[in-house]
Design a binder for these strands. Structure first.
Length: 152
DNA sequence: GCCAACGTTGGC
DNA sequence: GCCAACGTTGGC
C-alpha cells in the first residue's frame, strides 16, 4: 500500500470540481513529466491513498483525500490535436503518456502549505523541499498517517 | 509579474 | 554525450 500527493490547479480541476463529477471521479490527464508518469504507470494500484493538493493558486495546500481508482491507461488528451496536452509524437500504438483515475474520498478543511511547513513530522516531505516541482510524489506512510489523523 | 529551480531539446 | 538555450512550474 502506497500513498501519493497529486497536484492540481484549482482553476483546472479543484476539489469542488471533483466532488461534482460523476462518481466523484476524474481522469488525471495532462501529466507530461516522465517521473510523474512512471509513478502512475508503474507503481500505482487501485485503492492507494492520494492527498489532493491545490497548486498555482492563492492558498496552496492539501484540499482533500482521494484514492487511486484505476490502473494507468493512455491519456486521451495526447491524441487530441486541439488539446493543449496534444503530443504529436504519441500514437495509439505507442502512447507516450498515461494516467490513472482518481476518486474523492472526502474533502477536508484546506491544510495550507504554510502550515505543512510548521510540522517537524513533515519536514522531509518531497513537496516541502525547495525546488520541488514534481506534480506527483510518493508520501511516506508515517506522513500520511500524521496528515490524515492529526491535520485533516 | 518575478524569479529560482528544474526538465527538455537540439546542435555539435 | 555534453551543455547552452529555452520552456515550465509554482510559491511569493
Amino acid at each position: 500500500m502506497r500513498y501519493w500527493l497529486m497536484k492540481s490547479e484549482p482553476d483546472d480541476v479543484s476539489i469542488d470540481d471533483l466532488a461534482k463529477m460523476p462518481k466523484q471521479l476524474v481522469a488525471w490527464y495532462g501529466v507530461r513529466n516522465y517521473q510523474a508518469r512512471n509513478f502512475m504507470r508503474d507503481q500505482m494500484s487501485v485503492g492507494e491513498g492520494v492527498l489532493f493538493y491545490h497548486s498555482g493558486c492563492a492558498i496552496p495546500g492539501i484540499a482533500g483525500i482521494a484514492r487511486v481508482a484505476s490502473v494507468a491507461y493512455p491519456d486521451a488528451t495526447q491524441f487530441n490535436s486541439r488539446s493543449k496536452y496534444f503530443d504529436p509524437k504519441a500514437t495509439q500504438e505507442t502512447p507516450r503518456w498515461f494516467n490513472v483515475d482518481v476518486q474523492l474520498v472526502k474533502k477536508i478543511n484546506l491544510i495550507p502549505l504554510s502550515e505543512l511547513h510548521t510540522h517537524p513530522q513533515l519536514e522531509r516531505m518531497r513537496i516541502l523541499q525547495r525546488g520541488n516541482r514534481l506534480s506527483i510524489t510518493p508520501v511516506d506512510p508515517a506522513e500520511w498517517q500524521f496528515i490524515v489523523t492529526q491535520l485533516a
